[in-house]
């Protein structure tokens, strides 16, 4: 067994209480949703919060709704397995259903939430290990040590952001609705992440993500997700890429690509940056986009899959995703909520 360090357990009934508890208990308190990231990390001695504040007794945090303006609202406590099979999401924004379906394993998707996935701690082969193993290593910058083993001589942690739903939410232009002592604020998903990997979320300690808002996808949106991993289940990403695409005929009206499992921030590129806005999405252009993305993405040795190989295959993976996404028709069916 890997015993958990002791803590007090709180189960607030509403969000305000949760925020108040967070403020009151200070840095020793941590939110727990599904616990599938937090508990293994605690078992590894990566953190030992004195208080856990569970969100599961708060009602209505696990709702998926289509609002009148066509935008979607996804409660932070929505479980990944529910997202993966949600009919509206599958039709309107398949990228998110596909991403959710690729996380971990069936059991973990039943437990894990989208909020937890977005807030997933960054990962690194030198960090996600037991206390004993890390002591044998001599620890690292991110926790208890003073060197980085990924970037030799590096002064900053580059542990990887690997939440699979993150690139999906980014290409959809989603924002997180965050409640803090000061009230509610909206943070575009893209702006939620920063460096270093040891502190990669731009979220205050006493803030709670309440839900995610996805702008109206519109009829022409095509989207899709691909996750590279060596095992087809129970495996974190070696490279996950999401694409959202709008075509006018064959012409690229809008394209957004986002990837994780690189460093502590997702890599995001759009049609403009890729220099393909208004171009026809031909085979050559898809290859070109793949190569552009590859050029600007740098896999690191923070993940236990050969980083050079990951770099090499990125162009192919991006091209293939575009091929798949552009081949299926954009969703046109009207979906009732």
């Amino acid at each position: 067994m890997l015993p958990l360090p002791p803590f007090a357990y709180h189960r607030p009934r509403d969000l305000e209480e949760a925020v108040a508890l967070l403020s009151e208990l200070g840095p020793d308190a941590k939110l727990i949703a599904g616990g599938t990231d937090l508990l293994p990390n605690m078992k590894h001695g990566l953190l030992a919060p004195k208080h856990l504040i569970a969100l599961d007794a708060i009602s209505d945090l696990d709702r998926v709704e289509v609002l009148d303006d066509g935008s979607l609202s996804i409660g932070a406590l929505t479980r990944l397995s529910d997202l993966a099979v949600h009919p509206t999401i599958r039709v309107l924004i398949p990228v998110l259903a596909e991403a959710a379906a690729e996380v971990a394993s069936p059991q973990i998707r039943n437990m894990g939430t989208i909020g937890g996935n977005v807030c997933l701690d960054t990962r690194c082969v030198y960090y996600n290990q037991t206390q004993f193993w890390r002591s044998a290593l001599g620890f690292c910058l991110k926790k208890d040590g003073d060197t980085c083993h990924v970037v030799k001589g590096g002064k900053q942690c580059v542990a990887a952001c690997v939440g699979d739903t993150v690139p999906a939410l980014i290409v959809l232009g989603a924002a997180a609705r965050v409640l803090g002592p000061e009230g509610m604020r909206a943070v575009p998903l893209e702006a939620l992440y920063t460096t270093p990997g040891s502190d990669h979320l731009k979220l205050a300690r006493n803030e709670v993500i309440v839900r995610f808002e996805v702008p109206r996808p519109g009829e022409r949106l095509r989207s899709g997700f691909f996750k590279l991993r060596l095992r087809r289940s129970i495996d974190f990403s070696s490279f996950s890429i999401a694409a959202a695409l709008r075509l006018d005929g064959r012409t690229i009206q809008d394209l957004k690509l986002a990837a994780v499992a690189l460093n502590s921030k997702p890599r995001v590129l759009n049609a403009e940056k890729l220099g393909v806005l208004g171009q026809d999405l031909t085979k050559e252009v898809m290859s070109h986009i793949g190569e552009q993305f590859q050029r600007r993405a740098t896999p690191l040795d923070n993940i236990n899959v050969d980083s050079q190989w990951r770099k090499e295959v990125i162009a192919v993976l991006v091209r293939r995703l575009l091929e798949r996404v552009s081949a299926v028709g954009a969703q046109t069916a009207s979906v009732s909520s």
Partner: peptide, 20 residues
Amino acid sequence: ARGLHLGPNLLDYRLPTPLD
């Protein structure tokens, strides 16, 4: 090269799942 096992756990040491 440090004498450390590279991932002494069932996540890093990948046993194939039914899908593999």
